[in-house]
Design a protein around this nucleic acid. Sequence first.
RNA 1: GUCCCCUUCGUCUAGUGGUUAGGACUCGGGAUUUUCAUUCCCGCAACAGGGGUUCGACUCCCCUAGGGGACGCCA
Length: 509
Amino acid sequence: MSNKPVRTRFAPSPTGYLHVGGARTALFNYLYARAKKGTFVLRIEDTDQVRSDEKSRQQMIESMVWLGLEWDEGDEKGGEFGPYKQSERLEIYQNHAQMLVEKNKAYLCFCSNEELEAKKKQREAMGLPPVYDGKCRSLSTEEVEKKKQEKKDMVIRFKMPKEEIIVKDIVQGDVKFDSSLIGDFIIIKSDNFPSYNFAVVVDDILMKISHVIRGVGHLSNTPRQIAIYKAFECDEPEWAHVSEIVGSDHKKLSKRHGATAITSFRDMGYSPEAFLNYMSLLGWSPPDGIEFMKKEKIISQFDIERCNKSPSMFDVFDLSQADGVELSELNHFELEKYLFAKSKLNWLSNNHIREMSEERYLKDVMPFVIESKQVPESELNGKTLKDILLSLRVYLDYLSQIEKYIGDFFDKFEISNTAIEWLKKPFAKKLTETFADLIEKETNWHKDQISNLIKESGNICDLKGKDLFMTIRSASTGKTEGLELPVYLTLLGKERVLKRLKNSIEKTS
RNA sequence: GUCCCCUUCGUCUAGUGGUUAGGACUCGGGAUUUUCAUUCCCGCAACAGGGGUUCGACUCCCCUAGGGGACGCCA
C-alpha cells in the first residue's frame, strides 16, 4: 500500500517473563523488518505502575538477546525517536492528549469510579453495551474549572466518533466494527499515565511505525487506535493480526504450559536457532515447504501474507502428565520429564545441533558436561572428551541430554538388565576373559585394531554375530545400545575397558 | 450478555470451485547398521456438523456446535 520504509516494533509490557506467545510476536516483527530491509524497534510498555518491574524487563531483554532478535532501535540501545520506555515519555502523552482536548476531540472527565460502576451495572441489566454514557462530554469551561478547583480526580477521555470502522488487516482481511459499542474511552488515567490504547498510537506515530504485527487479541483494540490516528490526522500503519498460540489443552498459553518462559528452553539446551525455527512455523509456513531452516533462510522467505488466522498449538509438553503442576516453576531438570520426546521441536533441534560447527557445538555443550559432574576434571580439556562429545552429537535433541550419555564414558559403570542377560549366556565368561587378555597385551589402541581383537576373540571362542558383539558390548559398556562398538571402546580407553571387563567377569561367575 | 475471530490427518501446515486433498513431526512396517541412534523406502491417518449457491464445493453463503479473543483508570 505504502512505500514508506518498513519499521516494525515489539512492545512488551514488563510484567512477567517473555513466553512463547510474546516471543513469536517479536519474531514475526523481527523477521518482517529483516525481510524488507527495514528497522526493528523495541519499546517497553511500562505504564502499569503496579505490575511492571525491572526484573521482568531484564529477563525479556535477556530472552530476546538469546533468541538473536536484535533490535535496531529501542530500549538499552537508543535511537532518534527515544526514549523507548513509555514511563519516560509521560510528558509526550500528556501534551498529545492536550492537543486533542484543544481540538475538541477529547475531554476531561470527573466521574467517580463508583458512579461509573453503578452505571455499568445498570446498562448491563438493561442489556445495553457497557460503554461510558458521555456525561462529562459537554461540560462547560466553567464547570470544568470548578471541578478542577475541587481537586476532583480526573481523566481524559477520547470522543469516539459514531461511525463504522473498518480495520484493513493483512492477515484478517477487512473487519468491521460498530464504534457505538465502544464509547468514549480513557486516554489519560487519573495518575496522569496514558492508557494503553493511547500510548501505543502516540508512540507508533512518533516512532514512524509502518507495520503493526501483533496477536489477534489486539484486533478489537484496533478501532480505538484507528480513531486516534484519525484525530491526529495521521495515516494508519498497516495492520497484521496474527493468530494466537495455545497450549496443548487448546487454552491460551499460561503458566501452566509453563516453560513458555523462553529462558527455560535455553536452560534445557535448545539452541536459539532451533527454537526460532520452531516458533516461525507456528502460524506461518515457508513457500517451499521445507521446515528445517537457518535464520537467514527464514528471513528470506518470510512474509506476513503467508500467516494464517487459526490458532496454533504449542505442543511440546505432555500436560496430561503434569496435572496440577505449574511448569513455569520447574527448573530444566524437572521440566524435561514433561517434554514430549518426539516433538517437532526436538526433531528440528536435533537437526540444528548436527548442522552446527564443531566449535560452536563443543562450546555450547560444555556447560552441560560440567554440570553433569560425571567427567573427571583432569579430562575436561582432553581430546578424548572432545571426540566423545562429537560422537554423541547425533543422539542429542537438546544439549542437556548429554548428561544422560556422558557418564557412560567415564567412571560410571552400571550393567543394565538387558546387558545382564548377555552376560548370563554360557559362553560369556570365556569370551570376556579372552577379549580382556587380548586387550591387555594390545599396544596399538585404535578402532581398527580393536575391531580385529573382537573378531579374534570370536575366532578363539568360536562365536560371531550378535553373540560375539553383544556380549562384548554388554561386558564393556554395560548397555546393549550405543555407538559403534570399536569406536565406543576406543573412546573409553584401554584402562577403563579392562577395568569394566574384569568387573563383568565377576558378575558372570 | 454483546461484538469479533477461528475450525484440513494426533500435531504444525499446503490448499483460494474441478487435486488420487500435498508435505513435515509422531506412529506402524521394511532395508541398511553386530546393538541403539542415524539414513533410505513403504504405509496408517484429516476437510467439525447441517443446510444452501453451483454442472461441480475443503474452497462461496447461512445456521449449529466447539474453541479463542474483546468489551478496564491491564497491556
